[in-house]
């Protein structure tokens, strides 16, 4: 347990010192939200209607962008070998690394979402809904992405392949995330239905992805 706490602290410290991964993710998020209206047009009614979808797709891409480094730097400098030799199971190591990664990159996106939602003319309910759905849904994206990151860890240019492998599996989270966000500002579906399914998706991916990712990391060495 102490070892995992040390790992969590190390991951956060590294994220803070090495280039500020979290801040970069938020900037990328902002850029995606900014260019969407250029493609769609500045019609506020339209933007308000599809705003939750824009925010979710932007959050999905921002999450994915930082994930390829999740295991890669540890693989390159040999840390991954030693983590495999530690007493702590590799599955737990993966879990903690993912949680730390989410705290460093996913959480800032969640916090930034209401602000960027204002730019897309979302009203109060929609802002609240999209923030809540991102808060419970982005962990699923991080954990699913971790599987792709682990599978591509030994490849020099694994970033694009990782996106190809991971994106189909994010379809459920995207569907229920956007549904929950849209349902918050009215619609035929009650907010809680998609929201609770989204929670379930996050919990299930948190429970299963560490096993898949750890298996992939072990076979990569």
């Amino acid at each position: 347990m102490k070892a995992l706490a040390a790992l969590f602290a190390r991951e956060l410290r590294l994220a803070n010192r090495a280039g500020g991964g979290g801040a970069m993710g938020v900037v990328f998020f902002l850029i995606l939200v900014t260019i969407a209206p250029f493609a769609i047009g500045p019609d506020l009614n339209l933007l308000a209607r599809i705003g939750p979808a824009i925010l979710w797709i932007a959050a999905l891409l921002s999450t994915l962008l930082g994930l390829d480094r999740l295991f890669l730097s540890d693989h390159e400098d040999g840390s991954l070998d030693l983590l495999e030799m530690a007493d702590t199971p590799l599955e737990a190591v993966v879990l903690v690394k993912c949680l730390a990664h989410w705290a460093g990159t996913g959480l800032p996106l969640v916090l930034a979402a209401p602000l960027f939602g204002l730019m897309l003319a979302l009203d109060g309910d929609a802002l609240w809904g999209v923030t809540a759905s991102l808060a419970v849904g982005t962990p699923a994206l991080t954990f699913i992405g971790a599987i792709g990151a682990a599978l591509t860890v030994s490849l020099r240019r694994g970033g694009l392949l990782m996106a190809i492998l991971v994106l189909p599996f994010t379809v459920p989270a995207l569907i229920f995330g956007v549904s929950a966000a849209s349902a918050a500002s009215g619609g035929t579906v009650p907010f809680l239905t998609p929201f609770l399914i989204l929670c379930a998706l996050s919990l299930a991916s948190m429970a299963l992805a560490p096993f898949a990712a750890a298996a992939a990391l072990r076979s990569g060495g």
Binding site: R10, L14, R17, A18, D77, G78, D81, L82, M85, D87
Partner: peptide, 18 residues
């Protein structure tokens, strides 16, 4: 054996930022 071993390989397993 690995669980009771130290492995010093070509890579040093040190983080430059720490």
């Amino acid at each position: 054996p690995g669980l009771a071993a130290h492995y010093l390989g070509h890579a040093e397993a040190l983080k430059g930022a720490l």
